[in-house]
Amino acid sequence: MQKQTENIIEVKDLVKRFGAFLANDNLTFEVKRGEIFGFLGANGAGKTTAIKILSGLSYPTSGLVNVAGFDVYKQRNKVKENIGYMSQKFSLYEDLTVKENIRFYGGIYGLSNKYIKQKTEDLLNRLKMTQIQNSLISSLPLGWKQKIAFSVAIFHNPKVVFLDEPTGGVDPITRRDFWEMIYEAADAGITVFVTTHYMDEAEYCDRVSIMDQGKIKALGTPTELKKLFKADNMDEVFLKIAR
């Protein structure tokens, strides 16, 4: 896959402190445009804290964080307009229909009604969900909700989309389908920043970083890391680091 060299996310010496607890300890990394960047780590390693800072939900204690060319501290709104976010809860409004959810999220990003209407139609066709466009979200299976949640997160064509454990609780086949969607988004030029604790998914990423106890312990392509740690797969890499 051809890579561009422009950095879309730049993090330098990021520290996040909660009282005496150091959640993020001097993180430094870059993510390039169009890349699928895997952000791995055990539960409690500090992944969610970092993703919250990158997406403007939380402020860093110190350090430099640049997303889509804007400083998260000083230009928070610029950052927000250029990113999408999907949480592990696939947050959609259960009591709204598929179409209403898409409309609503399009609306809060300030897209015009005409554009939303056109794009919703395209999207529903692509997802083969035209039949269920007026069903309530609560009536849909988890895999479908996940797809809709992702489509909604990139509906406004963000430069970066943050996915916080987007495949939790979903069966392997649906997970596979979901990664297809991630590739499609990356091909369309959207940078994907994804956290996961499924190590097989790490193999799908262009580059991964592995966090442990608030620090980044390893960073590189899956092939590089496997070579470096003399491991057959990412699972082993991870176990060697976490030990």
């Binding site: 709104n77 990113i83 976010y85 990003y109 300030g110």
Partner: peptide, 8 residues
């Protein structure tokens, strides 16, 4: 969270 991430 989604609302807070948005430009609203």
């Amino acid at each position: 969270e989604i609302l807070l991430v948005s430009p609203l």
